[in-house]
Nucleic acid binder design. Structure first.
Lengths: 172, 172
DNA sequence: GGATTACGTCAGTATCGTTGACATATCAAC
DNA sequence: GTTGATATGTCAACGATACTGACGTAATCC
């Protein structure tokens, strides 16, 4: 390969990388716009949404586990968790095996709010999936999985693999 | 279709959607970790990175255009832009056709810093792309494009289409 | 010459993150 | 059963990033 050819390939490659960066920036920005609008009416923010989401996904999750997922300090969590509890969206219960733990779950009101936020994003994602098509969705998952650190990859890797073969017997 | 079958499909679909949501959450979190660490040493944050990135991408960009991309107020931009100018990373020049405009560009120091931040993310993205493979990358772009609002889609849509056919004559 | 536009800035506020320190309850172990 | 570690909560101070509202200046447009 000569100098010009190599430079050309590097240029294309950099453009591809920058395109992906911008897709992630704009995509994340626009993907969170729906919930943000709903939350603003309730005097809540994105941090509340994240708590609602992961508590909903993992009923009975401990505070420590939640802190690990969100990667924030317990002080930061406290500031959003306490209003969610006071507002009747989240309940705490003591761990039966370890009574030091406060296991978190959503109340019916919490589930309703989480679902409302979810549906707003679901509509957007479902349309994007439909427009892009099945193989594209699989590619999306593969690339996104590659961006994750080891901890998140361990958490989601199996699910990505399973989603890649949604029907028993389908070729992976 | 009977009730059970429909419920099953809806369940799978919701799991798929939630998986994508979590991939976006963890992916964005882990993708920004590299630059965040570099920026912290320079007493800067993600907001400074975004300015460096888009000014680098669009040399001579006006303040208004930058505000439109970032979707922030001029007051918020001012707080990060002024230190970048004072630190010698960004320069302003008056517009030749419209002297009210302040056209923004990176200095060599700004380009060097932007490149350093870029390379940290490039390494991660390039590995994810390589591991996922070309068709997956194309799918990734398609899905992400579908998440964008009209304004961002107009900005990136053509580039996504071009990236889907990187070599002249290749089938789209 | 008057309205609009592009930009800057001052003042105040909100959200979400941080560090550091300290308290309490519980568990685990010797 | 004291002792040390763990799980959680909380007080205080701080920092980054966003916001609104108001005002000022310079340049352009008509």
């Amino acid at each position: 390969m000569d100098g010009r050819g190599t430079a050309g390939l590097l240029y294309l490659r950099e453009e591809e990388i920058r395109l992906a960066m911008e897709l992630l920036f704009y995509g994340y920005r626009d993907f969170t716009a729906g919930p943000d609008a709903i939350l603003a009416e309730l005097d809540m923010g994105r941090a509340h949404h994240r708590v609602l989401y992961f508590v909903g996904r993992h009923p009975g999750i401990t505070v420590s586990e939640l802190l690990g997922i969100l990667r924030i300090t317990k002080q930061s969590l406290g500031r959003v968790l306490q209003p969610l509890i006071a507002g009747g969206y989240v309940v705490q219960s003591r761990g039966r095996s370890d009574r030091r733990q406060r296991l978190l779950s959503l109340t019916p009101a919490g589930e309703a709010l989480e679902r409302r936020l979810f549906e707003s994003q679901r509509a957007l994602l479902a349309r994007a999936f439909r427009d892009a098509g099945g193989p594209a969705v699989e590619g999306f998952r593969k690339v996104m999985l590659g961006l994750l650190g080891p901890e998140a990859r361990a958490r989601l890797g199996l699910r990505v693999a399973a989603a890649g073969a949604p029907v028993a017997g389908k070729v992976a």
